[in-house]
Design a protein around this nucleic acid. Structure first.
Lengths: 150, 150
DNA sequence: TCACCAAGTGAGAAGCGTTCTCACTTGGTG
DNA sequence: CACCAAGTGAGAACGCTTCTCACTTGGTGA
């Protein structure tokens, strides 16, 4: 399912993740770590992973990088774990949503075939929908297949 | 649109909001204030409103009441405002979602006609969906009508 | 009606995720 | 190479939320 987030064989570049912001050495490391993330992650988890790849990068820098990536639309908050924001890589540019696997914790991109359905449903009640967010919970393909045998 | 959240002419009772938890005088006051809320609210806003109705009720009590109501499924977190959790009354027992009006800030219940669509869309990609959350953004009926003239 | 006790309360301290500050460093441009 | 806006690290500060503790209250059984 990496194709979901890494259709380009080289994956998104640091500049893709940060938009037009300057990409320092530290941010390049953070971008690489984020790209290697296979599940949703908190800022602290990212900081640990980053410190593992390149000790010395501060927590503030991680938070600033997250902020830059969110601004660039490359990362988004998909939930909350123990009071910390749960983040996920969000590379596909087309409108999509996230499936949070309740077994392995991964967050996968899922196409959004609902746009019209959602809007029309609410419009029927008289509201005007301009945007929407959907978070799905369940089992991803891998965990679903693993479950069959167990 | 009050019918959305108050179909019973008397509205939900405190015990409805708290499930099986004990309903003290303070919790009854908090429940009443929550029922009168017309928009999504933060814990602090609720505390202010509660203090207005019955001075002396502590912030910790408000947080504990919120926690109890969330556990009972009567209140849910629908977002985040300046770092504080944004809460909304959630009385209808049938599966529904929330429309956050970007103009007046109210959070309205909207029927969920998507259940099958959402599940089948993700299922098509091989996942197994067990639940989902949808948050819609746009203009509620009132604001939409107000907009036409302006 | 009374006694008992689990559950709830108020006040404030503590915890903890996140943001800010400040002096220093670095990337990119001319 | 010089310049300077942008980024960095360390830690303090901030603010939301939870916890602690002594006290009160609601509900149950006798």
């Amino acid at each position: 399912m990496d194709a979901d987030h890494q259709r380009d064989p080289n994956g998104p570049t640091p500049s893709t993740l940060y938009g037009t912001a300057r990409v320092s050495v530290q941010r390049a490391v953070i971008a690489r770590v984020v790209r290697e993330m296979r599940t949703a992650f908190t800022a602290e988890e990212l900081h640990l992973a980053v410190a593992d790849a390149s000790p010395g990068i501060g927590l503030a820098t991680v938070y600033r990088a997250i902020s830059a990536m969110q601004e660039a639309g490359a990362v988004m908050t998909v939930g909350d774990r123990d009071g910390s924001a749960l983040l996920a890589l969000c590379v596909r540019n087309d409108h999509h949503h996230h499936l949070v696997c309740t077994r392995c914790g991964r967050v996968l991109g899922v196409e959004c075939p609902l746009g019209d359905a959602v809007s029309s449903a609410a419009t029927r009640e008289g509201h005007l929908i301009t945007s929407h967010e959907v978070v799905l919970y369940g089992l991803c393909v891998d965990c679903r297949e693993g479950t069959r045998g167990a």
